[in-house]
Amino acid sequence: MIRFENVSMEYRNGTAAVNDVTLTVEDGEFVFLVGHSGAGKTTLTKLMIAEERVSSGKLEVNGFRLDKIHSWKIPALRRTMGVVFQDFKLFDKMTVYENVAFAMRVVGAKPSVIKKRVPFFLDVVGLSHKADSFPTELSGGEKQRVAFARALVNNPDTVIADEPTGNVDTDLTEDIMELLLKINKLGKTVIVVTHDMGIVQSYRKRVVRIENGRIVSDKTGGDFE
């Protein structure tokens, strides 16, 4: 479960990116986080993985109180989260396979487990044939899917996808959304950050809209124009 209670957050340069946000996402929910560019969507996801700390308010994520978490507990929190970063954060010197395997390596997974899970998730995102390619040799959509495989490979409880359809055409957008729904059906909480109102409309899920760091609406299944 993710619970924001009157959370505000200010970057070190003084930008107030999140203002008095109160929001609860139950386990197993599927939530769209929408808002114009610069509204504070990415910042909210950063707060959820403790990449940034809240300035005030109470924040609980998957059983961790992030407003007062000890830094040594943060790795445990992050292992419950799988994030598809807006900028992918792929490594150009590693192949697609190695990029995905790296995420498992760094949390101490066994080589035998890595050998089984990486091909499986590359298959899930439809990139088995690109396993030995380097990110520089991939299209935007393909990079995105590598980032997906990497977010899923450690079997997180919560998956956060920051603009997962930003670089892909309509067909791929549908594939990716199908994938996210499948993940959600497996019982995982899914948070999708997007400004693509088209998909938001067609899937009729819970939609949280933020503007200037504030939640301005929180509806399920309605009309969002």
Binding site: W72, P75, L77, K89, F91, V107
Partner: peptide
């Protein structure tokens, strides 16, 4: 440094990094 940042975001412990 990018790998290190990513490792941290993935939940790698300090000792692992």
């Amino acid at each position: 440094r990018n790998e290190i940042t990513f490792m941290r975001l993935c939940g790698a412990t300090k000792s692992m990094i």
